[in-house]
Design a protein around this nucleic acid. Structure first.
Lengths: 158, 158
DNA sequence: CTCCGTGCAAAAGGTTTGCACTGGT
DNA sequence: ACCAGTGCAAACCTTTTGCACGGAG
Protein backbone atom coordinates (compact mmCIF):
# COMPACT_ATOMS: atom_id res chain seq x y z
CA UNK A 1 0.00 0.00 0.00
CA UNK A 2 2.73 2.42 -0.97
CA UNK A 3 1.61 5.88 -1.98
CA UNK A 4 3.53 8.31 -4.15
CA UNK A 5 4.63 10.18 -1.07
CA UNK A 6 5.97 6.98 0.42
CA UNK A 7 7.95 6.19 -2.71
CA UNK A 8 9.42 9.65 -2.69
CA UNK A 9 10.45 9.32 0.95
CA UNK A 10 12.03 5.94 0.31
CA UNK A 11 14.06 7.44 -2.52
CA UNK A 12 15.13 10.27 -0.23
CA UNK A 13 16.27 7.64 2.24
CA UNK A 14 18.29 5.82 -0.41
CA UNK A 15 19.98 9.12 -1.07
CA UNK A 16 20.63 9.84 2.60
CA UNK A 17 22.16 6.41 3.07
CA UNK A 18 24.43 6.78 0.08
CA UNK A 19 25.55 10.23 1.20
CA UNK A 20 26.30 9.10 4.72
CA UNK A 21 27.78 5.76 3.79
CA UNK A 22 25.19 3.41 5.25
CA UNK A 23 24.34 0.31 3.22
CA UNK A 24 20.73 -0.01 2.20
CA UNK A 25 19.05 -3.19 3.43
CA UNK A 26 15.63 -4.76 3.15
CA UNK A 27 15.08 -4.34 6.88
CA UNK A 28 15.85 -0.65 6.77
CA UNK A 29 13.55 0.03 3.85
CA UNK A 30 10.74 -2.06 5.30
CA UNK A 31 10.94 -0.51 8.75
CA UNK A 32 11.00 2.99 7.31
CA UNK A 33 8.03 2.07 5.14
CA UNK A 34 6.12 0.89 8.21
CA UNK A 35 6.73 4.17 10.03
CA UNK A 36 5.82 6.24 6.96
CA UNK A 37 2.39 4.64 6.85
CA UNK A 38 1.44 5.73 10.33
CA UNK A 39 0.27 9.02 11.72
CA UNK A 40 -0.10 7.90 15.32
CA UNK A 41 3.55 8.15 16.33
CA UNK A 42 4.21 4.49 17.10
CA UNK A 43 6.59 3.14 19.71
CA UNK A 44 9.44 0.85 18.70
CA UNK A 45 7.42 -2.13 19.80
CA UNK A 46 4.42 -1.11 17.74
CA UNK A 47 6.67 -0.81 14.73
CA UNK A 48 8.05 -4.25 15.49
CA UNK A 49 4.56 -5.76 15.65
CA UNK A 50 3.79 -4.24 12.27
CA UNK A 51 7.05 -5.20 10.64
CA UNK A 52 7.36 -8.79 11.77
CA UNK A 53 4.50 -9.74 9.47
CA UNK A 54 6.34 -8.41 6.45
CA UNK A 55 9.78 -9.61 7.53
CA UNK A 56 9.29 -12.99 9.20
CA UNK A 57 12.08 -13.64 11.64
CA UNK A 58 13.04 -10.02 12.09
CA UNK A 59 14.27 -9.31 15.59
CA UNK A 60 13.17 -6.65 18.01
CA UNK A 61 16.81 -5.65 18.27
CA UNK A 62 16.99 -4.84 14.60
CA UNK A 63 13.91 -2.66 14.81
CA UNK A 64 15.46 -0.69 17.65
CA UNK A 65 18.74 -0.38 15.81
CA UNK A 66 17.15 0.66 12.55
CA UNK A 67 14.87 3.22 14.17
CA UNK A 68 17.97 4.70 15.76
CA UNK A 69 19.69 4.87 12.40
CA UNK A 70 16.66 6.35 10.64
CA UNK A 71 16.60 9.07 13.26
CA UNK A 72 20.32 9.71 12.97
CA UNK A 73 20.25 10.18 9.22
CA UNK A 74 17.19 12.37 9.51
CA UNK A 75 14.67 10.13 7.75
CA UNK A 76 12.31 10.22 10.74
CA UNK A 77 12.32 11.94 14.12
CA UNK A 78 11.98 10.83 17.68
CA UNK A 79 9.44 12.95 19.46
CA UNK A 80 9.21 14.29 22.96
CA UNK A 81 6.91 12.35 25.27
CA UNK A 82 6.30 11.97 28.96
CA UNK A 83 6.04 8.21 28.71
CA UNK A 84 8.64 5.54 29.09
CA UNK A 85 8.70 4.41 25.48
CA UNK A 86 10.24 6.38 22.64
CA UNK A 87 7.84 7.30 19.86
CA UNK A 88 8.66 8.06 16.27
CA UNK A 89 7.28 10.46 13.72
CA UNK A 90 7.70 10.07 9.98
CA UNK A 91 7.20 13.79 9.46
CA UNK A 92 10.42 15.77 9.20
CA UNK A 93 8.93 19.10 8.21
CA UNK A 94 8.22 21.50 11.02
CA UNK A 95 4.89 21.06 12.68
CA UNK A 96 3.44 20.97 16.16
CA UNK A 97 1.78 18.47 18.44
CA UNK A 98 -1.25 18.13 20.54
CA UNK A 99 -0.98 15.81 23.52
CA UNK A 100 -3.94 14.42 25.43
CA UNK A 101 -2.93 14.44 29.08
CA UNK A 102 -5.39 11.65 29.89
CA UNK A 103 -4.56 8.98 27.31
CA UNK A 104 -1.18 10.32 26.11
CA UNK A 105 -2.59 10.41 22.62
CA UNK A 106 -0.50 12.51 20.27
CA UNK A 107 -1.71 14.12 17.08
CA UNK A 108 0.01 16.39 14.63
CA UNK A 109 -0.99 20.00 14.40
CA UNK A 110 -0.57 21.68 11.05
CA UNK A 111 -0.96 25.35 11.64
CA UNK A 112 1.58 27.37 9.73
CA UNK A 113 0.63 30.54 11.55
CA UNK A 114 1.87 29.27 14.87
CA UNK A 115 5.36 28.63 13.62
CA UNK A 116 5.61 32.06 12.09
CA UNK A 117 4.60 33.74 15.32
CA UNK A 118 7.27 32.14 17.44
CA UNK A 119 10.48 34.08 17.44
CA UNK A 120 13.82 32.95 18.71
CA UNK A 121 14.25 33.68 22.40
CA UNK A 122 15.83 36.98 23.24
CA UNK A 123 17.75 35.54 26.16
CA UNK A 124 18.95 32.12 25.07
CA UNK A 125 20.65 30.31 27.92
CA UNK A 126 24.45 30.17 27.86
CA UNK A 127 25.10 30.61 24.15
CA UNK A 128 22.88 27.86 22.95
CA UNK A 129 22.77 27.52 19.21
CA UNK A 130 19.15 27.16 18.27
CA UNK A 131 18.30 24.84 15.41
CA UNK A 132 14.55 24.64 15.62
CA UNK A 133 11.51 24.47 17.83
CA UNK A 134 8.17 22.82 18.27
CA UNK A 135 5.07 23.85 20.15
CA UNK A 136 3.36 21.26 22.33
CA UNK A 137 -0.27 21.95 23.14
CA UNK A 138 -1.79 19.85 25.86
CA UNK A 139 -5.33 19.23 27.00
CA UNK A 140 -8.02 16.63 26.62
CA UNK A 141 -9.12 14.81 23.49
CA UNK A 142 -12.79 14.35 22.64
CA UNK A 143 -12.79 10.65 23.43
CA UNK A 144 -11.33 11.06 26.89
CA UNK A 145 -13.66 13.94 27.69
CA UNK A 146 -16.66 11.83 26.74
CA UNK A 147 -15.52 8.62 28.39
CA UNK A 148 -14.42 9.64 31.81
CA UNK A 149 -15.39 13.24 32.26
CA UNK A 150 -13.52 14.77 35.15
CA UNK A 151 -11.42 11.65 35.62
CA UNK A 152 -7.79 11.67 36.58
CA UNK A 153 -4.91 12.68 34.38
CA UNK A 154 -1.88 14.83 34.86
CA UNK A 155 -1.83 18.54 34.47
CA UNK A 156 -0.02 19.36 31.26
CA UNK A 157 3.71 19.81 31.28
CA UNK A 158 4.84 23.38 31.15
CA UNK B 1 18.39 25.47 52.95
CA UNK B 2 14.77 26.42 52.52
CA UNK B 3 14.08 29.74 50.86
CA UNK B 4 10.91 31.78 51.22
CA UNK B 5 9.72 30.55 47.88
CA UNK B 6 10.20 26.96 49.02
CA UNK B 7 8.17 27.56 52.16
CA UNK B 8 5.41 29.08 50.13
CA UNK B 9 5.33 26.13 47.75
CA UNK B 10 5.25 23.69 50.64
CA UNK B 11 2.27 25.51 52.10
CA UNK B 12 0.57 25.39 48.72
CA UNK B 13 1.17 21.66 48.73
CA UNK B 14 -0.36 21.27 52.18
CA UNK B 15 -3.40 23.03 50.80
CA UNK B 16 -3.56 20.87 47.66
CA UNK B 17 -3.35 17.71 49.73
CA UNK B 18 -6.09 18.80 52.07
CA UNK B 19 -8.33 19.80 49.18
CA UNK B 20 -7.84 16.53 47.38
CA UNK B 21 -7.89 14.32 50.45
CA UNK B 22 -4.31 13.09 50.47
CA UNK B 23 -2.62 12.77 53.86
CA UNK B 24 0.49 14.82 54.35
CA UNK B 25 3.58 12.80 55.22
CA UNK B 26 7.22 13.51 55.91
CA UNK B 27 8.25 11.67 52.77
CA UNK B 28 5.98 13.75 50.58
CA UNK B 29 7.14 17.04 52.00
CA UNK B 30 10.79 16.05 51.85
CA UNK B 31 10.63 14.77 48.30
CA UNK B 32 8.80 17.87 47.13
CA UNK B 33 11.40 19.98 48.92
CA UNK B 34 14.17 18.16 47.09
CA UNK B 35 12.59 18.80 43.71
CA UNK B 36 11.92 22.45 44.52
CA UNK B 37 15.59 23.04 45.14
CA UNK B 38 16.65 21.95 41.69
CA UNK B 39 16.56 23.67 38.34
CA UNK B 40 18.04 20.85 36.31
CA UNK B 41 14.90 18.75 35.93
CA UNK B 42 16.03 15.66 37.81
CA UNK B 43 15.01 12.10 37.09
CA UNK B 44 13.28 10.00 39.74
CA UNK B 45 16.56 8.35 40.53
CA UNK B 46 18.38 11.64 40.97
CA UNK B 47 15.68 12.72 43.39
CA UNK B 48 16.10 9.44 45.24
CA UNK B 49 19.85 9.97 45.57
CA UNK B 50 19.21 13.40 47.01
CA UNK B 51 16.43 12.36 49.34
CA UNK B 52 17.92 9.25 50.85
CA UNK B 53 20.40 11.37 52.77
CA UNK B 54 17.61 13.28 54.46
CA UNK B 55 15.31 10.31 54.92
CA UNK B 56 17.52 7.34 55.75
CA UNK B 57 15.80 4.13 54.76
CA UNK B 58 13.49 5.72 52.23
CA UNK B 59 12.79 3.40 49.33
CA UNK B 60 13.09 4.05 45.64
CA UNK B 61 9.50 2.90 45.32
CA UNK B 62 8.27 5.66 47.58
CA UNK B 63 10.11 8.27 45.56
CA UNK B 64 8.45 7.02 42.38
CA UNK B 65 5.05 6.91 44.05
CA UNK B 66 5.38 10.34 45.60
CA UNK B 67 6.61 11.96 42.40
CA UNK B 68 3.55 10.52 40.71
CA UNK B 69 1.33 11.98 43.38
CA UNK B 70 3.01 15.37 43.30
CA UNK B 71 2.41 15.48 39.57
CA UNK B 72 -1.20 14.41 39.93
CA UNK B 73 -2.07 17.10 42.43
CA UNK B 74 -0.24 19.68 40.36
CA UNK B 75 2.58 20.48 42.76
CA UNK B 76 5.21 19.71 40.10
CA UNK B 77 5.11 18.68 36.45
CA UNK B 78 6.56 15.86 34.43
CA UNK B 79 8.23 17.23 31.36
CA UNK B 80 8.50 15.99 27.82
CA UNK B 81 11.77 14.28 26.97
CA UNK B 82 13.11 11.93 24.34
CA UNK B 83 14.96 9.88 26.90
CA UNK B 84 13.96 6.77 28.78
CA UNK B 85 13.69 8.32 32.22
CA UNK B 86 10.93 10.65 33.33
CA UNK B 87 12.13 14.06 34.45
CA UNK B 88 10.41 16.46 36.79
CA UNK B 89 10.13 20.21 36.96
CA UNK B 90 9.22 22.14 40.09
CA UNK B 91 7.99 25.06 38.01
CA UNK B 92 4.27 25.08 37.42
CA UNK B 93 3.99 28.51 35.83
CA UNK B 94 4.14 28.61 32.06
CA UNK B 95 7.58 28.69 30.59
CA UNK B 96 9.53 27.08 27.81
CA UNK B 97 12.45 24.74 27.41
CA UNK B 98 15.64 24.50 25.54
CA UNK B 99 16.91 21.00 24.82
CA UNK B 100 20.44 20.17 23.77
CA UNK B 101 20.15 17.41 21.16
CA UNK B 102 23.67 16.17 21.94
CA UNK B 103 23.65 15.75 25.71
CA UNK B 104 19.89 15.92 26.32
CA UNK B 105 20.51 18.81 28.68
CA UNK B 106 17.35 20.74 29.46
CA UNK B 107 17.18 24.32 30.65
CA UNK B 108 14.25 26.59 31.32
CA UNK B 109 13.58 29.48 29.03
CA UNK B 110 11.92 32.50 30.59
CA UNK B 111 10.81 34.65 27.73
CA UNK B 112 7.36 36.06 28.29
CA UNK B 113 7.18 37.36 24.75
CA UNK B 114 7.17 33.90 23.25
CA UNK B 115 4.13 32.78 25.16
CA UNK B 116 2.19 35.85 24.17
CA UNK B 117 2.91 35.32 20.50
CA UNK B 118 1.58 31.80 20.35
CA UNK B 119 -2.11 31.66 19.66
CA UNK B 120 -4.38 28.71 19.99
CA UNK B 121 -4.46 26.63 16.83
CA UNK B 122 -7.17 27.55 14.37
CA UNK B 123 -7.76 23.95 13.40
CA UNK B 124 -7.55 21.93 16.60
CA UNK B 125 -7.80 18.22 15.90
CA UNK B 126 -11.14 16.54 16.64
CA UNK B 127 -12.53 18.89 19.28
CA UNK B 128 -9.57 18.84 21.57
CA UNK B 129 -9.93 21.03 24.59
CA UNK B 130 -6.71 22.95 24.91
CA UNK B 131 -5.43 23.66 28.40
CA UNK B 132 -1.98 25.03 27.71
CA UNK B 133 1.16 24.81 25.66
CA UNK B 134 4.89 24.91 25.81
CA UNK B 135 7.53 25.70 23.23
CA UNK B 136 10.51 23.38 22.97
CA UNK B 137 13.58 24.85 21.33
CA UNK B 138 16.30 22.43 20.35
CA UNK B 139 19.88 22.85 19.31
CA UNK B 140 23.33 22.58 20.81
CA UNK B 141 24.56 23.87 24.13
CA UNK B 142 27.87 25.69 24.47
CA UNK B 143 29.58 22.81 26.23
CA UNK B 144 28.70 20.25 23.59
CA UNK B 145 29.64 22.59 20.77
CA UNK B 146 33.06 23.14 22.33
CA UNK B 147 33.70 19.54 23.30
CA UNK B 148 32.85 17.56 20.24
CA UNK B 149 32.21 20.00 17.44
CA UNK B 150 30.45 18.36 14.57
CA UNK B 151 29.95 15.15 16.49
CA UNK B 152 26.86 13.02 16.30
CA UNK B 153 23.50 13.81 17.80
CA UNK B 154 19.97 13.54 16.57
CA UNK B 155 18.26 16.15 14.51
CA UNK B 156 15.80 17.96 16.75
CA UNK B 157 12.31 16.64 17.11
CA UNK B 158 9.77 18.55 15.13
C1' DC C 1 38.15 -12.12 2.03
C1' DT C 2 36.54 -8.73 4.76
C1' DC C 3 32.93 -5.89 6.83
C1' DC C 4 28.96 -4.90 8.63
C1' DG C 5 24.21 -5.89 9.49
C1' DT C 6 21.51 -9.16 11.74
C1' DG C 7 19.59 -12.48 15.30
C1' DC C 8 19.80 -14.34 19.74
C1' DA C 9 20.30 -14.09 24.46
C1' DA C 10 21.50 -11.71 28.28
C1' DA C 11 22.11 -7.54 30.69
C1' DA C 12 21.03 -2.99 31.85
C1' DG C 13 18.03 0.66 32.94
C1' DG C 14 13.51 2.49 34.55
C1' DT C 15 9.00 1.81 36.64
C1' DT C 16 5.22 -0.74 38.65
C1' DT C 17 2.99 -4.11 41.66
C1' DG C 18 1.79 -7.52 45.58
C1' DC C 19 2.16 -8.07 50.16
C1' DA C 20 3.01 -7.33 54.92
C1' DC C 21 3.88 -3.80 58.27
C1' DT C 22 3.56 0.58 60.43
C1' DG C 23 2.41 5.23 61.45
C1' DG C 24 -0.96 9.10 61.13
C1' DT C 25 -5.48 10.84 62.02
C1' DA D 1 -8.62 1.01 65.45
C1' DC D 2 -8.58 1.89 60.79
C1' DC D 3 -6.97 3.17 56.60
C1' DA D 4 -3.50 4.71 53.74
C1' DG D 5 1.48 5.19 53.05
C1' DT D 6 5.65 2.78 53.11
C1' DG D 7 9.47 -0.75 52.37
C1' DC D 8 10.95 -4.77 50.26
C1' DA D 9 11.32 -7.89 46.63
C1' DA D 10 9.97 -9.37 42.49
C1' DA D 11 7.89 -8.57 38.15
C1' DC D 12 7.50 -5.85 34.04
C1' DC D 13 8.63 -3.07 30.20
C1' DT D 14 11.86 -0.77 27.23
C1' DT D 15 16.33 -0.45 25.40
C1' DT D 16 21.20 -1.69 24.88
C1' DT D 17 25.12 -4.83 24.38
C1' DG D 18 28.24 -9.05 23.42
C1' DC D 19 28.90 -12.48 20.38
C1' DA D 20 28.62 -15.49 16.44
C1' DC D 21 26.77 -16.11 11.88
C1' DG D 22 26.05 -14.91 7.13
C1' DG D 23 25.50 -12.11 3.06
C1' DA D 24 27.10 -8.30 0.11
C1' DG D 25 30.77 -5.78 -1.96
Amino acid sequence: VATNETHERLRDFDELCRQQGFPLTVQRRTILEAVLERTDHPTADQVYEEVKERLPGVSRTTVYRVLQLLTRVGAITRIFTRGAAARFDPVVRRHHHFVCVRCDGLVDLWDEGIGELVRMPSNPPGSFEIEGFSVYFFGTCATCRATWEGAEGEPGAI
